[in-house]
Design a protein around this nucleic acid. Structure first.
Lengths: 346, 346
DNA sequence: GCTCTCGGTGATATCGATAACATATCGAAC
DNA sequence: GTTCGATATGTTATCGATATCACCGAGAGC
């Protein structure tokens, strides 16, 4: 005989599966099956159970379920930030891809630091996620160890790490920025400046900077026009300040490339405020193809990155591994596309 | 004698608390206490346990813990979107406030529809969150019922719902937009136009529109200059299209108010593209005080809303209720501030 | 010297579900 | 008619932690 749950007087307790089972006149196991996708339960029984579920206002308790099934249904993702950044699109891609699978996203902000990322990873692992999505390839040693011990599939995104942990979905920020330089050089620009820092906080930014420097050198163009300003990620305002600094030190700069569209937008607006003509007096380009770059005036030349697609593909790869149940899954590196989008600012 | 966990040969299993306890020579209960904040364990014992934890690479399993303690440590929050919207700041405020408490955020996107919100609420409730944060006051009947049954504190944000479920942290969008109208009317503008829809998808947008209409009527100004365009939330591009439509139908419009800064920015850029002078030929104002409004040229007059603060306060109120353990908590309505920020566009 | 209190620790039951195995029923195949 | 197999359902053990109560020893108070 099943014990009677919720039998305490005076208080109303949330009903459990036992209550549903009693009311429907079946065992809890049958209720469990009826509430599952592929559960084989006769039509009549399922209906009885659904009536009981509705009458009681029962909601399945997944914490309990995941304990016994050893599947939490969580996927954890760490992004640097969601405010005014491409990562919001990536997060969106992840949730969209997860939606149909019943997996749920645990999202965390690293604030662009590996220390915060480590703490987050530890906190997330306590929830026993079935897969983990990281941004970038820079992690603390301890974080790497935690991830390895957890034995959970991991996807690094947005970069091509030199030493991948497991799966990768990303592109070479270095090459992408190099392509931008070469495209603009072909249009006749000669004296290039770069706005963007080189801290360990934003490894993607550093890689873009590296790509800029290397491309300039390969093309034999004037080097050294580099301005960093503030702490990554550079804001619109700091982009404006940086371009001022650039023009003071190298007034004959012909084209300014920025680590992101936000800083490019700030630079553009500052130039307009000063009465400069863009691109006649100075050309400006960004990175990331934010919406603002497409619709501001003049439109900003930039590198379009498949932010949303990165999220979707990272999630898709995890789902393959999780649902495939491959014990020893293969490492796979998915390259996502990028392209230069030329607009009026260059 | 405690049973030996992880005893299967050939495979390495994640260690459990039993493994740690065996290794440290104590009971699991002592391990549990040692890993907790206020657990009373002697210094020597704690150190022994920490050594064992590190040796084994043990990570606490919170799914199991929350089952027996009946506390999941989750807070669920539903936002319409995170891309290019003020809600990213609100989400940020929530996580920042939760960070020190050990509570973890479960975030969901409603895509501006109550149907998706209902589904999300149901999915979230399966995780037994200890508190729930919603955006706005529009919900399906079923969603209301689910929330009521769950017996969990709920905070509605960003609006002042006519029929609040429980707690509220927000402001009157109607009044805020009214204030903007009055501020600009004082500067001498007479013929006002409004860009922004009136669908049920974006109730905050509808309320702002209502506020616009009411203020115009109260001031006895020319009415009826309303343009909706596309499906909320209106993008930058649609803001540009809308202002074109506005100028075609009412070419003598003096000031255009937009439901958000993004549409205002789109309108502004479109006007500049057409060679119009802002604000001489037409004034433009937005809502929300996005970063782009402050740094574009000319800067856009707008209404600053404490997005981040809404998140923090909503979370703080939940924490009070959760940690306070009040069985029957009071309803509380927290009004958050807003102010008109005048810039060059008006 | 005796009781009382409290910090430190352990034994046991339990949280709410599901996995794994057992059982019952029915019809088809031989 | 017997056997086999598929479908529908029940029984039992268990997932990994924590609540609760019990216990023990040491120092305080009388």
């Amino acid at each position: 005989m099943a014990k009677a749950a919720s039998s305490r007087p005076g208080e109303s307790y949330a009903p459990t599966m036992v209550d549903v089972a009693l009311r429907a006149g079946v065992s809890t196991m049958t209720v469990s099956r009826a509430l599952k996708e592929g559960g084989r339960v006769s039509k009549a029984t399922r209906e009885k159970i659904m009536v009981a579920v509705n009458d009681l206002g029962y909601v399945l308790d997944q914490s309990a379920g995941s304990l016994s099934s050893r599947k939490t249904g969580f996927v954890a993702a760490m992004v640097p930030s969601l405010n005014n950044s491409n990562f919001a699109d990536t997060a969106r891609g992840i949730t969209d891809e997860l939606e149909s699978t019943g997996l749920q996203l645990l999202l965390g902000y690293t604030d662009y630091t590996v220390e915060k990322e480590e703490k987050l990873i530890e906190a997330m692992l306590r929830r026993r996620p079935e897969g983990i999505i990281l941004t970038g390839g820079a992690h603390t040693e301890r974080a790497r160890r935690l991830l390895k011990n957890a034995g959970v599939p991991v996807v690094e995104t947005w970069e091509l790490p030199a030493k991948p942990i497991d799966q990768v979905v990303g592109f070479s920020n270095e090459e992408a920025m190099g392509l931008l330089v070469k495209t603009l050089a072909k249009k006749g620009y000669h004296k290039f400046g770069y706005i963007g820092g080189t801290t360990s906080r934003d490894t993607r930014g550093s890689q873009r900077r590296e790509g800029f420097i290397r491309a300039i050198e390969e093309l034999g163009l004037p080097t050294g026009r580099l301005v960093s300003f503030g702490v990554p990620p550079i804001s619109i305002e700091q982009g404006g300040q940086a371009v001022v600094s650039m023009l003071e030190r190298w007034p004959d700069t012909e084209a300014v490339l920025c680590v992101s569209d936000l800083s490019a937008f700030g630079a553009l607006m500052e130039c307009k405020r000063r009465g400069m003509r863009v691109p006649q007096d100075i050309a400006i380009a960004g990175f990331g193809d934010y919406e603002v770059a497409a619709f501001c005036h003049p439109g900003i030349t930039t590198v379009n990155v498949d932010c949303y697609g990165i999220g979707r593909q990272a999630a898709r790869r995890l789902i393959q591994i999780i649902r495939g149940g491959e014990k020893q899954h293969q490492q796979e590196i998915v390259l996502t596309g990028y392209r230069v989008v030329e607009r009026e600012s260059t």
